[in-house]
């Protein structure tokens, strides 16, 4: 309420410090019936606070991510696939497995291309991506990611182009190495990307998430390798996938255990089902790969299962984040616990 048109920064408002209404102040000091309204200060308090909480009509406290699931969960998957494939491709190169190398490199470039499409689709207009490159902000995983992609994209593309066409082999090799150096970061930074939000299921999981993500990336890249490489060359793909799947499974287990109530969405509902499917697919894919290593068909099948497992895992994690954002209890309860802990510590 203006006192004239100028502001009055700091000037104490005149006489506005009224007491609130009816029930806010518990006593009516003028009243003969005061005793009736006085409440027992320092009286009994429930010793163990119930795990209940209040909310504002059940409305979420934070905003759910506005990202389109298909685009962004898809991007998480594709980015991981690309980054890890670049590493695998380089390794295959260095260890003389040309089909695996070529397949992985092309796969990386392809996945990257699709990832770019997904990103731009979510932004609405391609030109908007350029705004990402206005600034460098280490505090923004998305900024870091953009620069990473800016660096990694041409390398991965170059590596793939060279390996397909055979042109500029030297540059191709350099590109391959460069992509392999940046690829892991591309695969891993997305963990920071989603953890660096207020979304409880993501943020609280920031310790494990990078391992879940690289694990999942390796699973996917391995799967792709199994799909594209000749059987004699697919050993590393199989090993990579195995390592990835093992890492992912372990990390997810740890995560769920550590998160407690906030971890619920990883186990229940659609997100829980997706993650269970991911586990099953990865395990099945892996088993299949190990058993059917010599069979091109079986390898391909297992590769597809691993890819699907990785994708399901990303979609599951994405979905779990949305669920945890929508239900205020995932925001409020951990914070309440934290406060209680702090209060306890202070006492």
């Amino acid at each position: 309420m203006g006192m004239g048109e100028t502001d009055r920064p700091g000037g104490a408002p005149p006489d506005r410090d009224a007491l609130p209404g009816v029930a806010a102040g518990r006593d009516r000091p003028w009243s003969r019936h005061r005793a009736r309204h006085r409440r027992g200060r320092g009286g009994e308090r429930p010793m163990v606070p119930k795990a209940e909480f209040t909310s504002y009509y059940g409305r979420p406290v934070i905003k759910r991510p506005v990202w389109n699931s298909l685009d962004i969960a898809g991007y998480l998957f594709l980015g991981g696939l690309a980054g890890a494939s670049s590493v695998l491709g380089a390794g295959a190169d260095l260890t003389g497995r040309p089909t695996l190398a070529r397949g992985a490199k092309v796969g990386a470039a392809g996945a990257l291309g699709l990832a770019a499409v997904a990103l731009v689709h979510d932004l609405g207009r391609p030109a908007r991506f350029l705004n990402m490159l206005r600034v460098v902000k280490p505090s923004s995983p998305m900024s870091v990611g953009s620069w990473l992609l800016a660096a990694y994209g041409p390398l991965a593309a170059g590596a793939a182009a060279s390996s397909v066409t055979g042109w500029l082999p030297r540059a191709g090799r350099l590109a391959t190495l460069g992509a392999a150096a940046t690829g892991p970061l591309v695969a891993a930074y997305t963990a920071a990307l989603i953890s660096d939000t207020a979304v409880p299921a993501w943020h609280e999981a920031y310790r494990e998430m990078p391992f879940v993500f690289v694990g999942s990336a390796a699973t996917a890249a391995g799967g792709l390798g199994l799909l594209v490489a000749r059987a004699p060359e697919n050993g590393p793909a199989c090993g990579f996938a195995a390592a990835g799947a093992a890492t992912e499974l372990t990390a997810v287990r740890l995560l769920k255990r550590r998160l407690g109530v906030v971890g619920e969405p990883y186990e229940t509902g659609r997100s829980g089902r997706l993650l269970r499917a991911a586990e099953t697919l990865s395990a099945a894919g892996l088993g299949c790969a190990l058993l059917g290593r010599r069979s091109r068909a079986l390898s391909a099948l297992s590769g597809a299962a691993l890819l699907a497992g990785s994708a399901a895992s990303r979609f599951g994690i994405f979905e779990a984040g949305l669920v945890s954002a929508d239900d205020p209890k995932y925001t409020v309860l951990p914070q309440r616990d934290r406060l209680r802990g702090a209060a306890g510590a202070a006492r």
Partner: peptide, 24 residues
């Protein structure tokens, strides 16, 4: 988070290396 991302990324590189070497 960044520290863990770095470790995980390194892990990925390492895993690939191991996979390729042992695979061979």
């Amino acid at each position: 988070m960044w520290r863990r991302v770095a470790v995980a990324a390194a892990g990925l590189l390492g895993a690939a290396a191991v996979a390729c070497m042992t695979g061979r």
